[in-house]
């Protein structure tokens, strides 16, 4: 192997990408050639600088979320999501009925105990009806 051939193979030699026979030839040449030894050292020096993990660029934190939200939502997931909006849990209606009954019972109890001022309530209702009647009369005039 001459120097030119060694130059051609030196990178593949460093990267362990050469077949065994070429590797042996490069090794033998390097043993006897100072220039090619120097070339090997310079390549290794560049390699050492490039293997510094800080040379790589780190992924910005926001990119993962950005990509995930840009990807199309699977159709089955859309169906599932839209259907989940329409179908109420089984206990919703009985719960609503129970709440209504509880409120009604509560009001009936308060009424029975006289907590709600009936006369005041009647007076307000009477006043509301009277004002409505008055407005009807005024419209006719």
């Amino acid at each position: 192997m001459n120097c030119q051939e060694c130059h051609d193979y030196i990178d593949a030699y460093i990267d362990n990408e050469l077949d065994i026979s070429s590797t042996i030839l490069v090794k033998q040449h390097l043993r006897d050639c100072l220039d090619c030894q120097q070339l090997l050292e310079s390549r290794k020096a560049v390699g050492a600088l490039l293997h510094n993990p800080q040379i790589r660029f780190e992924v910005p934190d926001s990119l993962l979320g950005r990509v995930q939200s840009a990807l199309p939502v699977p159709r089955s997931a859309v169906k599932q999501r839209s259907s989940s909006r329409l179908v109420l849990p089984w206990f919703t209606i009985p719960l609503a009925l129970a709440a209504t009954i509880a409120v009604m019972l509560g009001l009936a109890f308060l009424n029975q105990e006289g907590v709600i001022d009936r006369s005041q309530g009647n007076a307000l209702a009477q006043e509301a009806i009277s004002s409505h009647v008055r407005s009807l009369h005024e419209r006719r005039l």
């Binding site: 130059h7 050292e41 290794k44």
Partner: peptide
């Protein structure tokens, strides 16, 4: 092209 002038500097100082 062939790889031209290699003339490497000492690798230690480069690093």
């Amino acid at each position: 092209d062939e790889i031209e002038d290699t003339s490497p500097l000492p690798s230690v100082s480069l690093s």
